[in-house]
Design a binder for these strands. Structure first.
Length: 227
DNA sequence: TTATGATCATCG
DNA sequence: CGATGATCATAA
């Protein structure tokens, strides 16, 4: 379903070429490209940049069982940068299905599949810059290096161990070196079902996986290392 | 309601 | 003042 969307790119090259067209654009120019208006109040349009970039690049929207570019196996993530050119916030990766987390292996984990190939698209998010004048940067097609892969798997296994034991109440964003678990909900009153320590159904906060800012920081810094 | 896109705002 | 927990918008 891509009625209002650009056609999905057929190749990585095509996708990267489209990214080059985005590089340097301001958010106001992006809005023109996607035939949208800049949000009246950015505070009430938190996901706006990500959604417009999806539209521009022809990512599949609202899909839940596939990466943004299913044929390429690539996940798209916009990466807001602060005034110092660094990620300030954690990056949401995916929802955690608390009712279906039995006996998953890291290699089969949805969060792992998403993170196999990520197209990072950094952009200026400093509030010192007027919203419409913030610029989009150069895309980075990334795959975790061995060390990063190890860190991710380690955190995931620690987290999943607790979740599988029904200990989601004892989990917090404090766990995990690079991958963390945090609430992912409309608000603190929206609950979802899960099993508690005794295997009994209970109501709990919906959770999601997030990447810590230090981790995404290291990803964009990799680009400046000699190869 | 669940999942996507995220940032906000308070607290330690 | 950075990180955690809370919150906002939208699609299906």
């Amino acid at each position: 379903m891509a009625s209002k969307h650009t056609a999905a790119p057929a190749s990585v090259e095509e996708l990267l070429e489209n990214c080059r067209k985005l590089a340097g654009l301001t958010l106001a120019e992006l809005a023109r490209q996607t035939q949208t208006d800049l949000p009246f109040s950015p505070i009430h349009a938190k996901g706006w940049v990500g959604q417009q970039v999806e539209k521009f690049l022809g990512a599949s929207a609202g899909s839940k069982a596939e990466p943004d570019f299913p044929n390429l196996g690539i996940e798209l993530k916009t990466l807001p940068l602060n005034a110092n050119g660094q990620p300030q916030e954690s990056t949401y990766v995916c929802h955690i299905q608390l009712m279906a987390l039995k006996k998953q292996s890291w290699s089969q984990a949805w969060v792992n599949k998403i993170l196999q190939r990520v197209l990072w698209l950094p952009y200026e998010a400093s509030k010192k810059i007027e919203y419409g004048k913030r610029k989009i940067g150069h895309a980075i097609l990334w795959q975790p290096d061995p060390r990063q892969a190890r860190q991710l798997q380690q955190d995931w296994e620690e987290i999943m161990d607790k979740l599988c034991m029904g200990e989601q109440q004892q989990l917090s964003a404090h766990h995990g070196q690079v991958l963390q678990v945090r609430p992912k909900a409309a608000n603190a009153r929206s609950l979802t079902q899960a099993y508690d320590e005794n295997g009994q159904l209970c109501q709990t906060l919906p959770l999601g996986f997030y990447l810590r800012p230090d981790f995404t920081r290291s990803i964009i810094e990799q680009r400046y290392l000699p190869r």
